[in-house]
């Protein structure tokens, strides 16, 4: 009696968003930016099944507007984003992985992440057969045909430029030195879009952290 407020503030339930404050504290993103990323996440994760998780087909669909198109590197990035190997990417995975691509993220993290993408078998080395697998997949998907000899020439050139100790595999230090000499290779590890994500997805203001008046 008498203590029922005339206005009831209801926090809209956003399954999957988790705690944006915690995610912001773990990343280069502000709380608003985490909320804006949730708008992007919602749109990607509802591409095939609206379950609040991104599966491989949805990731593919978001990248290529075509879920039938298999792409080796899209699959690989998905697997690296899917830290716990659940077969799906939840919002936390999504934000923490994109954080590496933030323009303000430490360069060292970007170099380490790129190494992880290319270390297909997770052995701690980028091996010749892994590079060969990537090159062949890339050529196949680009419908380019090269002779075995030409592919081997690409591999020889690659290892002559990276594998300084000539043990037939690229270790982390060799990778750091190589990308240090070839900074253009790290361009793909930075997404300028992440700097103004709140302008790209302004609807977060309406959908997130809105106190509704009942």
């Amino acid at each position: 009696m008498g203590c029922v407020p005339s206005k009831v503030v209801v926090r809209r339930h956003l399954p999957g968003l988790g705690n944006p404050v915690v995610l912001a504290s773990q990343t280069a993103f502000s709380v608003s930016e985490v909320q804006a990323l949730y708008e992007l996440f919602k749109s990607i994760s509802s591409g095939v099944i609206d379950d609040g998780l991104i599966n491989k087909e949805e990731f593919q669909l978001a990248l290529f507007k075509n879920q039938k198109k298999e792409n080796f590197f899209a699959n690989r990035i998905f697997d690296v984003f899917d830290v716990d190997k659940k077969g799906v990417i939840d919002f936390g995975d999504f934000v923490r992985a994109l954080n590496i691509f933030h323009p303000n993220a430490p360069h060292e993290n970007k170099v380490n992440f790129s190494f992880k993408i290319y270390d297909l078998d997770n052995t701690g080395y980028i091996e010749r057969q892994e590079v060969k697998q990537m090159v062949i997949a890339l050529l196949f998907e680009s419908e380019m045909r090269l002779t075995d000899e030409a592919v081997e020439a690409i591999l020889d050139k690659t290892f002559s430029e990276t594998d300084v100790n000539q043990d037939g595999k690229i270790d982390k230090e060799e990778w750091c030195n190589f990308v240090g000499r070839n900074p253009s290779l790290m361009k793909i590890m930075t997404l300028p879009y992440l700097k103004d994500i709140t302008t790209t997805f302004p609807s977060f203001v309406f959908n997130s952290e809105v106190d509704e008046i009942d």
């Binding site: 590197f73 290319y118 090159v135 020889d156 690659t158 430029e161 190589f178 793909i188």
Partner: peptide, 25 residues
């Protein structure tokens, strides 16, 4: 015959590694 490229240069220009597409509406 064109000069041989380094594999990582080839890979870095591949579309699958271009996550910018996620942000295109």
């Amino acid at each position: 015959r064109p000069p041989t490229m380094n594999a990582f240069e080839l890979i870095a220009t591949s579309q699958g590694l271009n996550l910018g597409k996620l942000f295109e509406k």
